[in-house]
């Protein structure tokens, strides 16, 4: 009887002390997998927004007509962040413009690099180091015909047991000459966090 008790306690002690220790492990994950670490704006939300906006833009019949014989030049205005979180909206803009550019429908000009371009052209034209016949000239850039812009807003609600966040992303393409909005779309995301009872 004693032996059995001893054996039992030894087994239990072994089971408790082994295995359950916390240790940190570093490993590579899948950058494309759905991420549900917390309720804040995450990589899956960014990818979902970029996918839906690009898909909608590419299959829109109006855009089909605009891009039938040429590849219009677009400039992307930074997405306005109207949510209560800090979100790098330039990253959303980058994802969308990269996808649209790679589809071959539009061409883009980058307003965020204007100062760097000006500096380089100044160096080429006025620095005295570059052969004037091979220097890139001022005033030859192509102006954008369209402007892509958007808003990201959120509604956040929570009580003791549940948190809920709703994101709405709206995007529009405006003809800069006429001011007409040629295309618009929006996408919504709802995320909830509830306390789960322990289970398997």
């Amino acid at each position: 009887m004693k032996k059995i008790t001893l054996l039992t306690s030894a087994l239990l002690a072994a089971a408790i002390t082994s295995g359950c220790a916390q240790r940190s492990v570093v490993q590579y994950g899948d950058a494309q997998a759905v991420e549900t670490t917390d309720i804040n704006f995450g990589s899956t939300d960014l990818q979902k927004i970029a996918n839906q906006m690009t898909d909608s833009l590419l299959v829109s019949p109006v855009i089909g007509n605009l891009t039938q014989n040429n590849h219009p030049v677009v400039f992307v205005e930074r997405i306005k962040n109207k949510t209560s979180e800090h979100i790098d909206t330039e990253s959303i803009t980058d994802s969308i413009s990269t996808k649209v550019l790679r589809s071959g429908k539009f061409r883009f000009v980058d307003m965020t690099r204007v100062n760097a371009v000006r500096e380089q052209l100044n160096f080429q034209n006025e620095g005295g180091l570059v052969d004037p016949t091979k220097a890139v000239q001022f005033g030859r850039q192509v102006g954008a015909q369209y402007m892509l812009y958007g808003n990201l807003s959120s509604i956040v609600k929570s009580n003791q047991d549940k948190s809920d966040v709703y994101y709405k992303f709206t995007m529009r393409l405006m003809d800069l000459e006429s001011g007409i909005i040629e295309w618009a779309d929006e996408t919504e995301i709802r995320k909830t966090r509830t306390k789960q009872s322990i289970g398997w």
């Binding site: 494309q32 759905v34 899956t44 990818q47 979902k48 996918n51 690009t54 898909d55 790679r102």
Partner: peptide, 26 residues
């Protein structure tokens, strides 16, 4: 390659939905 995201979707009991996809290039 390696740029195709996994998209989340919730399917309620006995619900049918249509998943929509557009190719990234022509």
């Amino acid at each position: 390659p390696e740029k195709s995201n996994w998209q989340p979707v919730v399917l309620h009991g006995h619900q049918s939905i249509k998943l929509h996809g557009v190719a990234p290039t022509a």
